[in-house]
Structures are given as C-alpha cells and as structure tokens.
Amino acid sequence: MMDSAPLVFYTLAALITFSSIMVVAARTPVISALFLVLDLFLLACVYASLNANFVAVIQVLVYAGAILVLFLFVIMMLNVPRVRSKPRIKALDGLLITMVMVAFLYMLYRVIAQYLSPLPVESAGGSNTEAVGKLLFVEHLWAFELASFLILLAMVASIVITKKRAAP
C-alpha cells in the first residue's frame, strides 16, 4: 500500500485553492467570510498532517474560532449588500491582470522547478508544545514582548480614534 501522506496533502491543497478562489469570487460578503474560515481550517489540517498539532490547534482556535467570527460579526452588523453587477474589465485593467498573471505563473514555475523532487514530509514527532514555548519565551522573549506591546498600542489607538467625544 502506498504512503497516504502525499494523497492527503494534495487533496487538502486542492481544497484550499478552491476555497481561496471562492473567498474573492463569492458575491455575498458573508459567503466570502465563511470560505475564508474553511480556508484557514484546511490550512490547520495541513499542519496536523505534518504532525504540528500545537500549531494546527492554535490556528483553529485563534483564526477560525475568534478572528473570523469578528469578521462575520461586523459584516452581519453592517449588513453589507450583495455585489450585484458583474465587474467590468477595462483595457488598462486587462493589461494589469495579464502582467500579474504572467508574474504569478513565472513564480509558480520557479517554485515547481525547485521542488520537483519528492515532497519533503518531515514529521516533528513527539510533543511540540514545549518546543514552541521554549522558542517563544526563552529564545525570542524580547521580540515576543515587543510584539505584544505593539498590538496593545494598536488596540488602544483604535479605541481612542473611534471613541465618541462627549457633547460640550
């Protein structure tokens, strides 16, 4: 019996590509957001198939379970209407799209050429929670603390900007 790892990977990759396209192609914003959830969830499945259980679970917990819920929440609150008209492609847009596509295909070609050898599926093995913890809190402690400070700053800033001033 053949090794099932490549099969699992390619199935997941195909599904991820499909749902990523649907994120931009869907006309209803809520559907777009839900495909993004699916996208991130499938990405977590890829992590799990590489035995990176901790990263996979955190991916689901943070992105799919929390951040995307807030996306959905805002879309539902604002009641963003469905996009009705089909986007019209003008000549200049067509040129731009062609250029981007060519650049993308070239990059794709380079990547495929580089990895034409069998897929390097290396499993970390054992518990990787400890490894992640050591990296974050021992080796990169300062970077970690600085990043959390930055995020806090951004949060405070957004509250200050959106806060209504009391009527004089």
Partner: peptide, 25 residues
C-alpha cells in the same frame, strides 16, 4: 490521543459559534 488534548476541545467548541451566527443571518 493528542498531546494538545484540551486545546483541541477549546478550538472545536469555539467553532460552534458559526452555527449560531450563520443560522441567525
């Protein structure tokens, strides 16, 4: 048997919110 046992439970129970949100919308 997962080495991330109860994080797994937290992650998947947090996905339950989509059912409620989508149903309402």
């Amino acid at each position: 048997q997962l080495d991330v046992g109860f994080l797994f439970i937290l992650a998947f129970s947090s996905l339950g919110v989509y059912s409620v949100a989508v149903a309402g919308w």
